[in-house]
Amino acid sequence: MDLLQFARGPALTWAATVFVFGITWRLVGILLLQRSPDFSEARNATSWLGAIKLIVTRSWPRREFRQRTLFAQSVGYIFHIGLVIIVFGFAPHILFFKALTGLVWPNLPSAVINLTSAITLAALIVVLVRRLSHPVLRLLSNFDDYFSWLVTFAPVATGMLTVAHFGARYETLLAIHILSVALLLVWFPFGKLMHSALVFISRGTTGALFERKGASI
């Protein structure tokens, strides 16, 4: 078994298994914790509307915060959108999802993917530099932050090298790329990357609770 076979075979299988196992474990573990009923007289009965409202509107900063958070949010947006484009727009990735789910959609031209990857990598580097240099972020950051950054950065970087056939043979690069994705999948449920699922739950929770009170959301 060569490296690529290992990557495409057992590594991916087990990474995907750990991925779903960890995600369901964490989500179920949170959601099944106790919830106390709220007997207070609701100001608005339609709390679900608040959940939706907050899920949607918290996607951009409120006017009052814009000046202070614009840069961080912009860079965040750039690499998030970049990742979505790369993960779901690149033909070989679509094939990956097709093999898993049977779903297919049109791919983007490779030139677009390459440019996006370059921009995404640049944004990720900016994010890291900011995390290392901003006093607040440096204080808050722990292993999870840096490791999650690494496992996000690595697939994009190795993916670009693979497409460019740069640095090693293609099959080795492809194997490393897939292994980096496997690492991402394995780490995903246990670190902050879970925010991609939790963001909806967390925002929805606050949105519903606050809408009930008529509080600001």
């Binding site: 006093p135 972020l137 902050k192």
Partner: peptide
């Protein structure tokens, strides 16, 4: 502790933006 607080504590991504909303941070940096 309940599901709500758990959701919150699980969700933090250490983005540090909350500092920018806090009068104590903004006033002292």
């Amino acid at each position: 502790f309940g599901a709500v607080a758990a959701t919150y504590l699980e969700s933090c991504i250490h983005c540090g933006m909350c500092a920018d909303a806090c009068h104590f941070y903004v006033a002292t940096e």
